[in-house]
Write a protein that binds this DNA or RNA. Structure first.
Lengths: 123, 123
DNA sequence: CTAGGGGCTGGAGCATACTCCAGCTCAAGC
DNA sequence: GCTTGAGCTGGAGTATGCTCCAGCCCCTAG
């Protein structure tokens, strides 16, 4: 895949793809005869997974560490499992906080609705 | 309340409290005889609410807009309700994505556990 | 054979959200 | 009355995560 195809398929900009490669999030892909990146299809799934880690708040430095370990193969299964398990707990906590906030916003919206009703009827 | 007390009660640093005041997230509190900030107790609740908006991903610029409207009183009930309702939908979407990611990480952790087992038993 | 489009590199620049610092003032305890 | 500590201001600096640019190289189509 050319870099433009990967960009379209993942939603990341071409600059971001090169940036991710530079910091070690994406393996440097092989080059074609003209020196241009030629990504394997599998990179799409990997980038999608990175996106989920990102969207759930895993910082870049930690994603880079995970990517490094992935490159090292079977020797890092345990380390990777532990990283995911730890992040899972972080996500669980955020989830709970999101649910609280959702409930709070429901209450606040209801309060505002009531205040607006009182205003408009000149109570 | 002195600024150090607010800092302790909210977990925000003193510098952050002054920064939040500068950008309009916190009302400038009255000053004591020596020119030092003397916060009303209510600021604690407000900062906690800001923290929840923050933790659920509302950007600073939007939190500032909400704070401005809050300062304008009853005339902005509708605008504020709409902001919260809009953010609520954003939070709902993030919540769904978090739940997906949680499920994905459960699967991945299980896969790693299996791989580790195979490694250690020299399959 | 040449014009255009895509891709390349290295490095600068930017937005967000703080964080730190110098140099000053004030008030209270010893 | 002097030291100490908390607080003050304005402005510079930092970390994160991209985003943009200049100047160059290829390949392809007309």
């Amino acid at each position: 895949m050319k870099i433009s195809a990967v960009s379209k398929a993942t939603g990341l900009s071409i600059d971001t793809l090169r940036f991710y490669e530079k910091i070690g999030l994406i393996d440097p892909p092989p080059r074609d005869g003209a020196g241009r990146r030629d990504y394997p299809e599998e990179v799409i799934g990997w980038i999608a997974f990175l996106g989920q880690l990102n969207a759930t708040g895993m910082p870049q430095a930690e994603r880079v560490r995970y990517a490094e370990r992935r490159r090292q193969g079977a020797a890092t299964y345990t380390a990777r499992r532990e990283m995911l398990a730890a992040h899972r707990e972080v996500v669980r906590a955020k989830l709970a906080l999101m649910q609280d906030t959702l409930a709070l916003m429901d209450r606040k919206v209801a309060i505002y609705e009531q205040l607006e009703a009182e205003e408009s009827t000149d109570v």
